[in-house]
Computed example of a mutant assay.
Amino acid sequence: MKILCTFGKYQYGNPDRGIGTEYAAFVSALKRLDHQVIHFDSWDKTIFSNYAELNQSLLKIVEQERPDVMLTVQRNYEIWLETLKIIQARGDVATISWTTDDSWKYQEVSRFIGTAYHAMTTTYAEVVDKYNKDGIPNVLLTQWAANPEILQEPIPAELCHYQVSFVGAAHGDRKQRITELKSKGIEVTCFGHGWPNGSIAAEEIPRIMRESIISLNFANAYKGVNQVKARNFEVPGAGGFLLTEYAPGLERAYIDNKEISVFYSTEELAEKIQYFLANLAERDAITQTGFYRTKQEHIYDIRIQEILNFALESHAKWKINNPKYHTISFEKAFEEHTLNSGLQFLQTFLIFLCFLIWGRKRCLQAARRLMFEISWRFLGDKTFMASGWVGRMFPYV
């Protein structure tokens, strides 16, 4: 099949942040499954001058390439509802969106865009009922996974180069936690943005995981509850021993103290580190079992095939239930995506206000975020339309 992947190539659309998790995982999996992949970068702020140009280009590539499936990852309002509904109504393209951070983004994003897709995915079981109650029945509960290209048999603890390692940015309370471990006599070798060792090449990460007696993972999220992320699968997939902070839903993927090990507090983390460093045979057994569980159930090739099947099934059902579906005019949407004098005044006011509070470097981004928070709360799905205020006021901030 021909698959149109509509999401960023780089993390947050920024080449300095490296290749994005979704791009690295989904594109390679689709190619391994012998699909033809077309990538449309909807996150890179240097490609298009505004959202109107982005949406025009997306419709054009759909018309030219006529993909069987369009798989998107939406950050927020970059793809208009009008654009999605035009593609949805074509009849020849099954559309499905992989959602991220639904623990908090469901309320802000997913519930507003869900009806414009034939199918949605979520990695949070607790929001499936919310989708259904909001009139979005075609939702697939899925999860992150490991890239099969990094799969390696574990090595014994006695051959590992690192005792305890952590790979990830030094944001949130991670520095504080590492400091607390150090105060208890536990040294952790850290890699990533904000640590003394700095960032490392992507291909080095699986090696570090495999060559660490213990690989740590912190589940703290930008907002809301702890989250299951790709790292939960990448560590055991790379042949590493995963000691991870608990996140809801993790028990559906692995068995604690049999395939991975879970902690709930920094105190328990320190105790478990000391325990497994003193019980290497038990560590090796858990590592081996976790690796085989990952290899058999938690690789992206399996996830992507499930997603494609679900998209096609949902598309077929949608066509039966919507035999006379009429779409809207993109030309009208395009005309509504203009910055009038009223919005220009509001834009200037918000930027000035945020400048007084956060300074020159952060004022533009802060103003956009403030407008978005106001918009989804009071304007709802209009936030994600061509006429949405925040998209008109702050293109590519």
Rank of each mutant, 00 (worst) to 15 (best):
G13I: 02
N14F: 12
D16L: 10
D16S: 13
R17T: 12
A24Q: 07
A25L: 13
L33F: 03
L33N: 03
H35V: 10
V37G: 03
D41G: 04
T46M: 03
Q56D: 14
S57Y: 08
I61L: 02
V62N: 11
Q64R: 15
T72W: 00
I79E: 04
I79S: 09
L84E: 11
I87H: 11
A89C: 07
W98P: 10
K105F: 09
K105W: 10
G114L: 15
T115W: 11
T122V: 03
T123E: 10
Y124M: 15
A125Q: 06
E126H: 14
E126F: 15
V128Q: 11
D134I: 03
D134R: 06
D134A: 11
V139P: 09
T142I: 05
N147I: 12
L151K: 11
P154Q: 01
H161F: 08
V164W: 03
R174K: 09
Q176D: 11
R177K: 12
K182S: 09
E187K: 08
N197E: 09
E204H: 03
E211G: 04
S215W: 09
F218K: 02
N220W: 05
Y222E: 09
G224K: 05
Q227I: 04
Q227V: 03
V228E: 05
E234N: 01
G239D: 09
F241D: 10
Y246R: 13
A247G: 02
Y264T: 12
S265P: 07
F276S: 06
L277W: 03
N279Q: 08
T287N: 11
I302S: 15
R303Q: 00
Q305M: 06
E306C: 11
N309R: 12
F310Q: 02
K319Q: 07
N322T: 02
K324C: 15
E331M: 02
A333R: 04
E335H: 13
E335Y: 06
N340G: 11
S341N: 10
F349L: 08
C354Y: 09
C354W: 05
L356T: 06
G380F: 07
S387L: 05
